[in-house]
Structures are given as structure tokens and as C-alpha cells.
Amino acid sequence: FVVKIPAGLAPEQAAPLLCAGVTVYSPLKHFGLTTPGLRGGILGLGGVGHMGVKVAKAMGHHVTVISSSSRKRAEAMDHLGADAYLVSSDGDAMAGAADSLDYIIDTVPVHHPLEPYLALLKMDGKHVLLGVIGEPLSFVSPMVMLGRKSITGSFIGSVEETAETLQFCVDKGLTSQIEVVKMGYVNEALERLERNDVRYRFVVDVAGSNIEEAVAAAEAPSN
């Protein structure tokens, strides 16, 4: 597919928006969650989650980041502009936030319980799964019956939505937090990805890389 990059959007910024950006933009649009004033939750603060915060805020939403620890609190609120931060292991805080969210964008890619998060949704609230998980998730049916809540999912987005995402980000002045690396750094970048040591996307600068050196480095025996 070919998507035109709007004027004013650098190629290194366009690259992650073609995945992480449209992945959160698409369900917000498709499920009618673009109205200013909505209260949304972003579950998981990674490459997709950090764009979820930015896109939802740009739509005029009150955004709560939900995470398993308080480690990313300052990053979420001071740097990304989230309105609130909720630690899922804090029972009192979770109980205090019950029935407060119109939707949750769930970016967690590993098995996790749904019931604690379904309890956060208002009447007709939507829990949107974006993480690819290879084992069944479970919940008790009253968690969705009481409150007429929905569990649904979304995967990336259409070409049309991709173009809309790029233009939306230009119009709103949104950027993805990236680290630009050369081809010779790719192996180390992959190791850092395994350690979750990137905020929040690597972008490979192919044009600015010495390909021959990169190939030689990749083929060199490791110590």
C-alpha cells in the first residue's frame, strides 16, 4: 500500500504512526469514541499505549493510564500529558475508580485478567483489546451484563484510517517518542527491545547508514 506523507511530517515520525498511531486511532473512530469530554483508560504504556495517550488527549478526552506499578507515573503525567495514573495492583485506588471510564484501550500483549478493568467502565463502556495474546482470556458474564459493557478488539486499521491518522497528527502537532538508530545498531536495538529498554519506538535510518559496515558488523563473530 502507498500512503501520502503530509507536508510537515518528518519520515522518521511518519514511520511509527503507520503502525502504533493508526492502531489506536482506528478503534477510537470506529467505535464512536472521538467525542470531546470522554473519559478513557490506556492500559499499558508502551509503543502503542503512549500514542494512545497522545491521540486521546488530542481528541479532548480525560485520560487515565493504567499500569501494574507506579514506575511510569511521572513519564505518563509529566511527559505524555495523562490526567490520572492508576496502579492496577492498588485495590483501593481501583475500587475508587470503578464505573468511571467510557472506554479502555488495552495494549497489554500478555495474558491478564479482564475483570478488574471491566469494573472501571461506565454503563455501555467498551474494553478494546489491541494486544496479541496467544491464550484464552476469561471473565464472569455479570461483569459485562451489569452495565451492558462490551469487550471487543481492533487490529491496526485501514489505508484510509492510516492517511487520516497522519493528517490528524500533523493537525494536532502530535509526534511519537522515537530513537533513531543506524543499521549497524539493529542487533543491539533488538536486544534492548527484549529488555523493554526503548521509549517508545526505534526507527532505523537506512539512508544515513553505511550498509556495508552494518553487514560486516552483523557477520562478525561475537566474543
Rank of each mutant, 00 (worst) to 15 (best):
V2E: 14
V3F: 11
I5H: 00
P6T: 11
A7Y: 13
G8P: 05
E12Y: 03
A14L: 01
A14W: 00
A14Q: 03
A15G: 12
A20R: 02
T23I: 04
V24C: 04
Y25W: 15
S26V: 03
P27V: 06
P27R: 04
L28E: 03
H30D: 09
T34S: 03
T34H: 01
P36Y: 03
L38T: 04
R39M: 08
R39Y: 08
G40K: 00
G41A: 12
G41F: 06
G41D: 09
G44W: 04
L45K: 11
L45F: 08
G46D: 07
G47V: 03
M51S: 01
G52L: 07
A56S: 15
K57Q: 08
M59P: 01
G60E: 03
G60I: 04
H61L: 05
H62T: 14
H62I: 08
H62Y: 13
S68G: 15
S69V: 10
K72M: 09
A76Q: 11
A76K: 06
A76T: 11
A76S: 14
D78Y: 05
D83F: 11
D83K: 12
A84T: 13
A84W: 09
A84L: 11
S88C: 13
S88D: 13
D92N: 15
A93P: 13
A93D: 12
M94Y: 09
A95K: 15
G96W: 14
G96P: 12
A98S: 14
A98P: 08
D99A: 15
S100R: 13
S100N: 12
D102P: 02
D102M: 05
D102S: 08
Y103T: 06
Y103R: 09
I105S: 07
I105G: 01
D106L: 05
T107W: 03
T107L: 05
V108T: 08
V110T: 14
H111D: 10
H111V: 10
L114P: 02
L114F: 15
L118P: 00
L120W: 03
L120D: 05
K122N: 11
G125R: 00
G125D: 01
K126G: 03
H127R: 10
H127E: 13
V128H: 04
L129C: 12
L129K: 10
L130V: 12
V132M: 14
I133E: 11
G134L: 06
G134N: 14
S138Y: 10
S138N: 12
F139K: 07
F139Y: 15
F139D: 07
V140W: 04
P142M: 10
M145G: 13
S150T: 15
S154L: 07
G157W: 02
V159K: 13
E160T: 14
A163F: 05
E164H: 01
L166Q: 03
F168S: 02
C169H: 00
V170A: 09
T175P: 00
S176N: 06
S176G: 01
V181W: 02
K182F: 01
K182W: 04
K182A: 09
Y185I: 01
A189D: 03
L190S: 00
L193H: 07
R195F: 10
D197G: 11
D197T: 06
Y200S: 04
Y200D: 01
R201N: 05
F202A: 03
D205Y: 02
N210V: 07
E213T: 11
A214F: 06
A216Y: 02
A217M: 10
E219T: 09
A220D: 10
P221Y: 14
